[in-house]
């Protein structure tokens, strides 16, 4: 049973991994700081660990999809991330890809059941 649990977990992780980039890009048309992003994704039913999200944000920034800015006016400094035009372009493509895939998957699994 232990291995089944582990297997399910690792398969679930694999399945989710690809969707995370899309999730983050979908929420960053307006500048957002890291933890607000965690919350807003959670509210939409997409839980993401901060220790996955923060490194992911940096990666997306290094790939040119996001841009960040430190906001030091408030009571504590916050780093805001937002999509670049390139990020928006990529996001649209990924979204189309996702829609197609989701449609196809639905069809596949409808036949199954």
């Amino acid at each position: 049973m232990g291995t089944d649990k582990g297997l399910i977990d690792s398969l679930r992780l694999e399945l989710r991994r690809g969707t995370l980039v899309l999730s983050v890009l979908s929420r960053t048309d307006e500048p957002k700081y890291g933890y607000a992003l965690v919350q807003s994704l959670l509210d939409m039913g997409v839980p993401i660990d901060p220790n996955t999200l923060y490194p992911l944000l940096r990666r997306l920034e290094s790939q040119g999809l996001l841009i960040s800015e430190w906001e030091t006016d408030g009571p504590k400094p916050r780093k805001y991330y937002r999509r670049t035009p390139f990020g928006t372009e990529i996001y649209r493509e990924l979204r189309n890809e996702w829609n197609q895939m989701a449609g196809a998957m639905e069809l596949l699994m409808k036949e199954e059941s």
Binding site: Y33, G34, Y35, P50, Y54, R58, W70, K76, P77, R78, K79
Partner: peptide, 13 residues
């Protein structure tokens, strides 16, 4: 940069 970012995160959490 990461250390500032983490302090922000830990504060929020």
């Amino acid at each position: 940069d990461v250390s500032m970012e983490l302090k922000e995160l830990i504060g929020d959490m």
